Simulated assay, not measured.
Amino acid sequence: MNPYIFLRALKHAEHTVFGVQDGQKTYYNPMFRRYCPYSSGQQVKRSMLEELTSKLNVPMAPVTYNYQITKDKQLENKEIWSPCDPNYVDQLIGGWMRAGDGATLKRRSPLSISAMRPLHPLLSGTTSENLTFDRSNRPNNNPVNVRVAGSDKLLTEEEIETFLTTNGRALTRRHWIPENRRANGLFVHDVAIDLRTLFSVSTNQHEPELSKEKIEELKAKGWIESENTFGKCLVLPNNERTKIIPALAKSLLHWRITSNQARTFSLMETLAVAISDNASTIAGTIRAKLTDDGDDLKAKPVLDETAGADLFVTLPCAGYIADVNESADALIKAEEKLIAMMRAFDYEKQN
């Protein structure tokens, strides 16, 4: 059995934001000379892990923020410490890194996750708008404070009125927030699941994933001593794997970016999912086709059931792609496919 599962999902996003810093993130596509909105693989992974812990109703692993007081009495950021503990499901699935005092501990995530980017540069875009924070309709309920730059002293009402009259100015209860970009279009992301390390943690102490103390703790909790292609390892017991696999399947399909949803909500509905143990087939199953319409190049989304991957098409997809075999239970069937593939792998006897 191929120890990899590959997944490509097609999503629709409507007038939303994938990032918080400087508004919507974009990258430049030189072939089509367009700025394309995207969500980083790290943000997609974080969204999946939040969905996973929510489904299992367990907390995410705590991290320790370290600071150091310098000689000139300043606070300096130091390394952030992860607990490096696979008892936390987001650590087991998401991996960890801890450097600093003592040995460096590092576990590579068994999930490789791409950025969520346009299916084709011509099938996505951004719009820009100016927002307002406006309370001008209720001036009496919303006071205004005025202070001179460099001072904490507030001007009195009489001083404010004198300044406004003298300088011909007015105070408003409206703030403009300019140049807010929003993303629209059809987007894809890819996931590769390495089943060899999905529930296995290396006990190698030359490039350690775990401390010796944590290894003994896991053994006492019933983790199974085994060996995979990377060497000796500990495997999560079957009863725990049975709980995680269905929740992981759901999380891979039903996640969405939630960090900006208060002001830019979008369902980010999944339109189609391709699943295979061959990466090339998912790329062919959900793709775009470039067409030449006179002087204008256009891109057409394509769902190809003959490309070799299992394809699952949801009802909303018919609103964006013609002639598709959509179904109401598409994502349920996709979950069942993922669960079956993950359960079929022999985690305890890999060699």
Rank of each mutant, 00 (worst) to 15 (best):
M1V: 09
A13K: 10
G19Q: 11
M31T: 15
Y38M: 11
T53L: 04
T53D: 11
K55I: 13
L56Y: 12
Q68H: 11
D72C: 00
D72W: 02
L75M: 02
E79I: 05
W81N: 02
S82W: 12
P83K: 08
Y88I: 04
Y88K: 00
M97V: 12
M97A: 12
S114V: 03
M116D: 00
H120L: 07
L123K: 04
S128P: 10
S128I: 15
T132L: 15
R147H: 09
R147A: 13
R147L: 04
L154A: 11
R173V: 02
R182W: 07
R182K: 15
A183Y: 00
D190I: 03
N204S: 13
E207M: 13
K212M: 13
A220C: 07
I224C: 06
T229I: 13
F230H: 12
G231T: 10
L236N: 04
N238L: 14
E240Q: 15
R241M: 13
L252T: 05
H254N: 14
W255C: 02
Q261V: 07
L271A: 02
N278I: 01
T281P: 10
T285Q: 00
D292K: 13
G294D: 01
L303Q: 03
D310G: 10
D310M: 05
L315H: 06
V324W: 04
E326G: 03
D329P: 02
M342D: 00
Y347I: 06
Q350W: 09
